[in-house]
C-alpha cells in the first residue's frame, strides 16, 4: 500500500531522513515512535507529499507520488491526515468541516456528504455538535472532529501526526479510544505517537526512529518486552519513567 525506497530529506544542512526504506501493507497499523527531532513527523508528512523528499521514491497503491507529474491531489483524497494541531477550518461549522472537501474536491453531492458526515460524527460521539464552530469545542473534541473529517473522505490510508500531543492529559483518552475503534477496520493506519499504550494495543508493527533512521522495527511484543537496540531501550525507559 505504501512503499518508501531510499527516501532522503534535507532541510538545508540538516539531514532529516537518511535513506529510509519502508513498506506498509494494506490494512496494516504501523506505529512510529522515537525522540523528537528523529524525523518521524517528516517521514509521515512525506507520505502525502506535504514534505517533498530530496531523493528517493514513494509509491502509494502502485502510483509513484514522487514522480514529476504525479496526480498528487487525486492521491491525497485517499490518504487522509490528522494533525497535531487539529487544523479544523475555524470559519466553518463542524459539519461543514466534514463536507467541504468531499463536495468540492471529490464531487460528492451535498446531501450524501452530510449524511455520511453525520454518521462519522456519531461515531466519534459528536453528532450533537454538528452546528457548532471549532472554537466552541474542547481540544479533544476538535481532534475527534478532525478524525471524522478525515474519515468522511473515505480514505484508504489514515496518517496521524502526533494526534494527542497538543491535548490536555484528560482529553487524550477520548481521542485514543476513537483511534482504537477505527483500527478494528480494514483501513491502513500510520501513527506517529508517544502513546505507548496505544502502540502496544493497536499496532501490528512498531518502528523506532532516531536521527533520521529506522533503528529498530518489530511487533509490539518484541518492542515492549525485549528490544534489541540500546537506544530503543533507553528511549522506552525514559518514556515510561515520564508517564
Amino acid at each position: 500500500m505504501i512503499k518508501l525506497e531510499a527516501v532522503n530529506k534535507h532541510f538545508g544542512d540538516l539531514h532529516v531522513l537518511k535513506n529510509i526504506n519502508l513498506e506498509v501493507g494494506t490494512g496494516e497499523k504501523l506505529v512510529v515512535i522515537g525522540p523528537s527531532g528523529s524525523g518521524k513527523s517528516t517521514l509521515i508528512r512525506c507520505m502525502n507529499l506535504l514534505e517533498k523528499p530530496s531523493a528517493g521514491r514513494i509509491i502509494i497503491d502502485d502510483t509513484e507520488i514522487t514522480a514529476p507529474k504525479a496526480p498528487i491531489t487525486t492521491i491525497r483524497q485517499s490518504v487522509a491526515m490528522v494533525f497535531q494541531q487539529f487544523n479544523l477550518y475555524p470559519h466553518k461549522t463542524v459539519l461543514e468541516n466534514l463536507t467541504l472537501a468531499p463536495i468540492l474536491v471529490k464531487g460528492v453531492s451535498k446531501k450524501e456528504a452530510e449524511e455520511s458526515g453525520l454518521l462519522y460524527l456519531d461515531r466519534v460521539g459528536l453528532r450533537h455538535k454538528a452546528d457548532a464552530y471549532p472554537a466552541q469545542l474542547s481540544g479533544g473534541q476538535q481532534q475527534r472532529v478532525a478524525i471524522a473529517r478525515a474519515l468522511n473522505m473515505k480514505p484508504q490510508i489514515m496518517l496521524f501526526d502526533e494526534p494527542t500531543s497538543a491535548l490536555d492529559p484528560e482529553m487524550i483518552q477520548e481521542v485514543l479510544d476513537v483511534m482504537t475503534d477505527l483500527a478494528k477496520e480494514g483501513i491502513t493506519m500510520v501513527v506517529v505517537t508517544h502513546e505507548m499504550g496505544f502502540a502496544r494495543n493497536v499496532a501490528d508493527r512498531v518502528i523506532f526512529m532516531d536521527q533520521g533512521q529506522i533503528l529498530e522495527e518489530g511487533t509490539p511484543e518484541h518492542f515492549f518486552t525485549n528490544p534489541a537496540q540500546e537506544r530503543t531501550k533507553s528511549f522506552l525507559s525514559r518514556i515510561y519513567h515520564a508517564s
Binding site: 494533525f83 487544523n87 474536491v105
Partner: peptide, 18 residues
Amino acid sequence: IHKGQMEAALSQGFGYWS
C-alpha cells in the same frame, strides 16, 4: 493564517488555488 490551514486543505486534495 496559520500554515496548518493550507496543509489541512492540501491534505484533503484541494489544489493550491482552490
